[in-house]
């Protein structure tokens, strides 16, 4: 368990520091698309946390950090849910009997 806590701490440190030092330059693919001139064929998509920002937080860094941690939480929550579904919630599991 201690190992997992260390990894979770590492994830939080990376997510938060990445939020404040992220480069605003386009990524490799976008840059190539801009340079060659087919970037306009991309269709803008939007979602709850478009561009890694929380819509209701004004500060750019904090907004990204919160969005990033929310994403990490989503992933961890999903897998922990899967684990629970197959152990505690499964009546046939030896751990339950």
């Amino acid at each position: 368990m201690k190992v997992y806590l260390k990894v979770i701490l590492l994830i939080i440190v990376i997510a938060v520091s990445a939020s404040f030092f992220a480069s605003s330059h386009p990524d490799g693919l976008e840059w190539v698309a801009e340079k060659l001139g087919f970037i306009e064929t991309a269709k803008e998509s939007s979602s709850i946390m478009t561009d890694y920002t929380m819509p209701f937080i004004q500060h750019a860094g904090i907004s990204t950090a919160v969005a990033g941690l929310a994403g990490v939480g989503l992933i961890l929550g999903l897998l922990w849910g899967v684990k629970l579904f197959f152990t505690k919630l499964n009546p046939n599991h030896p751990a339950r009997i």
């Binding site: 990894v7 994830i11 990376i14 997510a15 030092f21 990490v72």
Partner: peptide, 11 residues
């Protein structure tokens, strides 16, 4: 997956 997600945010 969580670690990679966080690390991918690092541009």
């Amino acid at each position: 997956a969580g670690l990679i997600f966080a690390a991918q945010m690092f541009n």
